[in-house]
């Protein structure tokens, strides 16, 4: 039977293919093929979010796993593809506001998915139920942060919250498919945080300006990683789903 977790080869393959994609993005940007760069990102993100949506259908109704996979799909769509789509429109203040709002929605969706998974696992791992209220509070706290701080700095905070929640989730879940997904989110949050910080630093700290061009490419990494993960996840879940009914009845 299919093992319910990524093998070391699959995990390293996932990292490698994401890095190759990153290198391709960097190459396109350096050679001035910005349009191609945007299109390739859009194709990957849209495909990724579509695959996560398909995966969510494979999970049972109202389950935490469905909420999480759907939330990752929304995150890639709203914080990835939608942000790049705005690239085609002429920049103005209203557009920046809309973009920020869409990005916020993406983050909140991802936080909701992770929180739901933690809430389910917390009880099994500790026997305590006290975590639910705290987790509902997290996406709302994100909203508060977005309102209070400079928008780029608040993105860093969102990434930090994603990182911490995904880390808690990865610690709570034993080795298996949910753990792999949470670990990927944990890894993805780091370059995302870095890219937002570079973007923020590039505007307020003069010596951060030279590394600003790399920010675009670093920002693509989380979406590429999550999109490529969807291919592996879909394959695993489909094979495991074939034996779910058998598992239920023996």
């Amino acid at each position: 039977m299919e093992k319910p977790s990524l093998s070391p080869i699959e995990a390293s393959g996932l990292g490698l293919i994401s890095l190759i994609y990153l290198w391709l993005q960097f190459y396109l940007l350096r050679t001035g093929l910005t349009f191609m760069y945007v299109i390739s990102f859009l194709i990957l993100s849209l495909l990724g979010s579509l695959l996560w949506a398909i995966i969510s259908i494979l999970h049972s109704r109202r389950s935490a796993a469905r909420a999480m996979t759907l939330s990752i799909g929304f995150f890639i769509l709203l914080s990835g593809a939608a942000q790049k789509l705005l690239f085609f429109l002429p920049p103005n203040f209203r557009l920046i506001q809309i973009s920020a709002l869409i990005n916020l929605a993406g983050y909140m969706s991802l936080l909701y998915g992770i929180s739901k998974m933690i809430a389910v696992r917390w009880f099994a791992a500790t026997g305590k139920r006290s975590v639910k209220a705290m987790l509902v509070f997290m996406p709302l706290f994100t909203l508060y942060l977005a309102q209070q701080s400079p928008i780029l700095l608040s993105y860093v905070a969102f990434d930090l919250i994603c990182f911490f929640l995904a880390s808690i989730g990865a610690l709570l879940f034993p080795r298996g498919l949910p753990n792999d997904v949470l670990a990927c989110i944990q890894v993805a949050a780091i370059p995302s945080m870095l890219s937002d910080f570079i973007r923020y630093g590039g505007k307020v700290i003069p010596f951060a300006a030279p590394i600003l061009p790399f920010e675009e490419v670093i920002a693509s990494f989380p979406f590429a990683l999550l999109a490529f993960l969807s291919f592996l996840y879909l394959r695993k879940v489909r094979r495991l789903k074939e034996v779910v009914d058998f598992a239920e009845v023996g």
């Binding site: 099994a124 498919l177 495991l240 598992a247």
Partner: peptide, 26 residues
């Protein structure tokens, strides 16, 4: 126990150990 173990084997790599630990926690 066996039915739950089968479900765990779909979720985790080391189902028996995970289930044992979860039961102990509760």
């Amino acid at each position: 126990y066996k039915a739950l173990l089968r479900i765990y084997s779909l979720l985790y790599s080391d189902p028996e150990k995970c289930l044992r630990e979860d039961i102990e926690a509760l």
